[in-house]
């Protein structure tokens, strides 16, 4: 775990840069995290991020299918919003853990 300054706040992140305390997240921090990986957040991005945070708080596992069925954006659209790795990138910006397997 390391401390990192994002949008003027000290937050704790893991070795891969994912926030370890989802409650420390704010919109300003999200903007700072997005900027670091070269993404400018639009309204559509925010809708996805809010959906991911809501799902995370309800204990629902993150998947491409779930986002695709959310009515916010289809999977192709999600790849355009977060190019290269939509789930790992959107989770990073949303301040929630990266989707993982058991090992």
């Amino acid at each position: 775990m390391v401390q990192k300054t994002l949008a003027g706040k000290n937050v704790e992140v893991n070795d891969e840069g994912y926030m370890t305390t989802p409650s420390e997240w704010s919109r300003d921090i999200a903007t700072a995290l997005a900027t670091e990986i070269g993404i400018t957040l639009t309204d559509k991005h925010w809708e996805v991020l809010e959906y991911l945070r809501k799902s995370f708080n309800e204990g629902v596992a993150l998947s491409l299918r779930k986002v695709g069925n959310s009515g916010i954006v289809d999977i192709k659209g999600l790849y355009s919003l977060f190019p290269g790795g939509p789930l790992k990138k959107s989770a990073l910006i949303a301040g929630i853990p990266k989707p993982a397997s058991c090992v």
Partner: peptide, 16 residues
């Protein structure tokens, strides 16, 4: 894989 790696947990990634 649709995940970010073959191993996704920190200790497993390093160990395996």
């Amino acid at each position: 894989t649709p995940l970010s790696g073959a191993f996704t947990k920190p200790t497993s990634s390093k160990a395996l």
